[in-house]
């Protein structure tokens, strides 16, 4: 539910964006929770990507990235701070797609590490992981314009509401 800036009434979110938001948020939160429990496995998976980053940066990413995913996923499900969380989720998905794409383009044999140590069979294959990340990115980009006008300084609805003077 979003609040209309002009009338102040609650309006229902369309079913499509709502389902996409819940699915994306639940998937991010689940992946984050599974990775947060096993940061060492995530660190070894990150090493497999052969990124040009120092060891400390990869360790820091292995420690903090799952929590960022978990928080963003939970915030997305709860529709909390949507004007900030949705671009953040889109950026996260963009980073995932870029990382997976560069590793695939270089022909690396790696474990995606998307869901921690959980064995998901063919879902863990790099190509499948890239397709999944691309779908998540598409979903997060689709959700971006569907934010409420509440708390959005750049929204035309809000600026119209600020100009509105009741008779």
């Amino acid at each position: 539910m979003n609040r209309d800036a002009l009338t102040g009434k609650m309006r229902a979110e369309p079913a499509g964006p709502l389902l996409i938001r819940w699915s994306l948020g639940a998937m991010l939160a689940a992946a984050g929770a599974m990775k947060a429990a096993h940061p060492a496995e995530l660190f070894s998976a990150l090493l497999g990507y052969q990124l040009p980053l120092p060891d400390t940066a990869l360790r820091f990413a292995a420690v903090t990235l799952p929590w960022l995913e978990l928080l963003c996923g939970a915030a997305l499900v709860c529709n909390f701070w949507r004007e900030t969380v949705r671009p953040m989720v889109a950026t996260l998905c963009l980073v995932f797609v870029g990382t997976l794409a560069q590793a695939l383009a270089r022909g690396l044999d790696f474990d995606c590490g998307c869901f921690g140590p959980a064995t998901l069979g063919w879902l863990e294959r790099p190509a499948t992981a890239l397709i999944r990340a691309a779908l998540l990115l598409a979903a997060s980009l689709y959700l971006l314009p569907f934010r409420g006008s509440e708390g959005n300084a750049a929204s035309p609805c809000r600026s119209a509401a600020s100009r509105f003077r009741p008779p």
Partner: peptide, 21 residues
């Protein structure tokens, strides 16, 4: 909508989420 969404980001909230994580 995408352009508006990107300009509407609240940086303090973004920093709060990053620091909490």
């Amino acid at each position: 909508g995408l352009r508006e969404a990107l300009t509407a980001v609240r940086w303090r909230r973004l920093a709060a989420i990053l620091m909490l994580a």
